[in-house]
Simulated assay, not measured.
Amino acid sequence: MSASRPTIVVLTAPDEPIPEGFEALEAEAELRRADDAAGLRETLPGAEILCVTDFRTDALADAWPAADALAWIHATSAGVDALMIPEIRDSAIPVTNARGIFDGCIAEYVLGQIISFCKDFAGNYRLQQDRQWQHRETEPVAGRSVLVVGAGSIGRRIARTCSAIGMEVDGVGRRARDGDEDFTAIYAQADLLSLLPDYDFVVIAAPLTADTEGLFGAAEFKAMPPGARLINIGRGPIVKTDELLAALQDGEIDGAALDVFEQEPLPADHPLWGLPNVAISAHMAGDFIGWKRALSEQFIDNFRRWQAGEALNNPVDKQSGFSAAGR
């Protein structure tokens, strides 16, 4: 059983307030806020819970010696790569994440990008701006093949969404598995290079780990068929940006929809902005109206489970960096 009124430290991005909805906890816990390493060092002593809302934070390693009472760490994001410093990864402290909150909207984003590519919405827009009437034929969506790299909850929602309109969807996980209910087949990540020639769309939905960082580079783009498109809603460093740029410029792949980048924000002078076959969004594929409130409610529900001594929802396998329920 936890302390009757524990202390929760909320690590936010600089100048961001404690998330909307956390006021519901004021009678049940002491809330402290930090937005940098110095603030975190000041607020961690005696705190039982750390809630990290800044998924890009680099404050944890510097402030960690001040963590003398932590019993649970929560990330209000699906990815937990920023939290996986050795001190946390090798500790007995459980880590949970925001699994499930963003799945539906990310799947809608992916399907929207696939339809946009097939129906050439970008081409329509350019012709409209030039007031040109140009009849063209476009591609069917049904029957297209999709490889989803990352078979966790987000990847599975993408598979179900794309399958519903007649696309053929396979997955890539840490290991191959038969008889999956969402994917036609799940292959091992070790076989990725040999799989890529067979798909019209490759969707990256994996978390950033030591095994996925830099997973897509020149060799992978050369293996994809010339008409293939890449969609990345996972993490930017999974893709080697310079090698993707070269593949797009050389016509090795036909296009890319990118929501995440190695460097965020993407610099205004980056060549990717000017490519007509690239769709760029600002790390927002899953962010729906009301998402911040939904994250707060998810954390509050888990907090009350923790207070009651119940098992926490959404535990993360800290050694792999994946949700413990992920694939």
Rank of each mutant, 00 (worst) to 15 (best):
S2T: 15
A3V: 14
R5F: 04
P6N: 13
T7W: 09
T7A: 15
I8P: 00
E16S: 15
P19Q: 10
G21E: 11
A24C: 02
A24Q: 11
E26H: 06
E26M: 06
A27Y: 01
A29I: 12
R33Y: 02
E42S: 13
T43A: 15
T43I: 04
L44D: 05
L44M: 11
C51H: 14
V52P: 01
V52G: 01
R56E: 05
A61E: 11
A61T: 02
A66T: 14
A66E: 13
A67C: 11
D68Q: 10
A69H: 06
H74S: 13
A75H: 05
A75M: 15
S77D: 01
A82C: 14
L83T: 05
D90Q: 07
V95S: 07
R99K: 12
G100W: 03
C105M: 10
A107G: 06
Y109S: 02
V110W: 03
K119A: 04
A122E: 10
Y125N: 12
Q128K: 04
Q129L: 09
H135T: 09
P140L: 12
P140A: 09
V149M: 07
G150L: 12
G152F: 03
S153D: 08
R157T: 12
C162D: 02
A164Q: 08
I165C: 15
E168N: 13
R175L: 04
G179Q: 10
G179V: 03
D180Y: 02
E181L: 12
Q189A: 15
S194F: 03
D198V: 08
Y199A: 15
V203L: 05
I204M: 14
A206R: 09
L215F: 08
F221W: 05
L230R: 01
V239S: 05
D242Q: 10
E243F: 00
A246V: 13
A246N: 06
D250L: 12
D250T: 08
A256N: 04
L258S: 12
L258E: 11
F261L: 15
E262A: 07
A268K: 10
H270V: 09
G274K: 08
L275F: 06
V278S: 07
M284R: 13
W291C: 01
L295Q: 08
Q298I: 00
D301R: 08
G309L: 07
E310W: 05
A325V: 06
